[in-house]
Amino acid sequence: MANEKTVIMDNSGIKRAITRISHEILERNKGLTDVVLIGIRSGGAFLAEEIGRVTEVIEGVKAPVGAVDITLYRDDVSGQLPHQAVGKTAIPFSLEGKRVVLVDDVLYTGRTIRAAMDAMMDHGRPACIQLAVLIDRGHRELPIRADFVGRNVPTSIKENVAVRFDDENLPIEVVLEK
């Protein structure tokens, strides 16, 4: 099968999308009071750092940024636990009463988000959880929707959408693989 790759969002497109998402997060939460950004490893964690930087430039205050690895919360555990190492969850602050903004790169079936929300609940009871994603590619299998979306990309199930990052974990581009 030919592996056809199309760039559907370039570097400046990603930057603009992140800037808009950052403004929307600030607007919705009326600033950064009690807001914490939690990225889902690995891509979402890098994007959460980016959103953290951009919102800091706009508001002049820095929201706490954490990262969550959802491997241990996956729902496909019984048959197919992955062989790979479990990544580190780094949430060095309590989520009790916080406005959590979950960040992921690509929203697809929603199962990752479900797992991430379960993980959040084990770290305290947040006041609310919002979801920010760079790409929403559709095909949800759970009743989950994003609050902040970089771009909606209609895809076929056979295709794959990937956000590529450079060595410093900054986003380069979004590619659609057929």
Binding site: D69, L72, V77, S78, A85, G87, T89, D122, H123, G124
Partner: peptide, 25 residues
């Protein structure tokens, strides 16, 4: 690999809720 996973597991042991659903069942 085992040591790396163990380092990640340590985070769970420092939480208030020291449990993940991974090996349920």
């Amino acid at each position: 690999l085992l040591l790396s996973t163990a380092e990640s597991m340590r985070e769970i042991n420092s939480r208030d809720i020291k449990k993940v659903p991974t090996l349920r069942g």
